[in-house]
């Protein structure tokens, strides 16, 4: 069974509707035991990192997600759900779950671009299973002020990067290693290509 983590994230409803549309069998839960025992977990999110971490901790969901990730079963973080999988966020100095190495950073203020990035941006991807059937430079919908870092602390490129996008700077718009998957964009709001990506996670990735 696929479980969507319920911690009152803003896009829970959209993810739920998209999964219904895809005829996925899934459950929505905030119960740590159900999450740990799931076959796959989708971790959505819109909002602010510190508040979200507070909600996750208060419900024991932080530990549940870390435990689930260690089982080797597929985990998919979306937007804030992707960011929370990293180590640390500059957004109100917040410690995160530490599943994906690297820090979440605020877009530079000197880019001559609007922050947050709101709108459609193209993704150069690594043709991994999540992007199967999705052409290079396809567009996805983004809403964010902070981005997933592409560099490790030593300065080398993270081996986790599965997709890159450019908004003033180049940032990681998709991340993957082993059983962990994450996108900065919202597949549930990215039209047919986004639905295809969600479908890939549901049906192609074990």
């Amino acid at each position: 069974m696929i479980t969507v983590v319920d911690y009152e994230a803003g896009n829970l409803k959209s993810v739920e509707t998209a999964l219904y549309h895809l005829n996925a069998e899934f459950t929505i839960s905030s119960d740590p035991e159900i999450i740990v025992k799931s076959d796959k977990v989708i971790f959505p999110g819109v909002g602010e990192a510190k508040h979200a971490m507070g909600v996750l901790r208060s419900r024991g969901l932080d530990k549940a997600i870390i435990t689930f990730a260690s089982t080797g079963k597929p985990l998919f973080g979306i937007c804030l759900g992707a960011q929370i999988l990293q180590d640390y966020s500059e957004e109100r100095d917040t410690q995160l779950l530490g599943i994906i190495p690297g820090d979440v950073k605020l877009f530079p203020s000197d880019m001559d671009l609007k922050v947050p990035q709101i709108g459609w941006n193209t993704v150069s991807h690594d043709s991994s299973l999540l992007f199967e059937g999705i052409p290079q430079e396809s567009s996805f919908y983004f809403v964010h002020s902070y981005y997933l870092s592409t560099k490790l602390s030593g300065g080398s490129d993270s081996p986790w990067i599965a997709g890159r996008s450019k908004y003033g700077i180049t940032f990681a718009s998709a991340v993957h290693r082993d059983n962990i998957w994450a996108t900065q964009f919202h597949p549930e709001k990215s039209g047919p290509k986004g639905l295809k990506l969600l479908d890939n996670f549901i049906r192609r990735i074990d």
Binding site: K13, S14, Y20, H21, E188, K189, G194
Partner: peptide, 8 residues
């Protein structure tokens, strides 16, 4: 609408 279209 939310059930039918998958854009913002």
């Amino acid at each position: 609408v939310a059930e039918k279209i998958f854009i913002p």
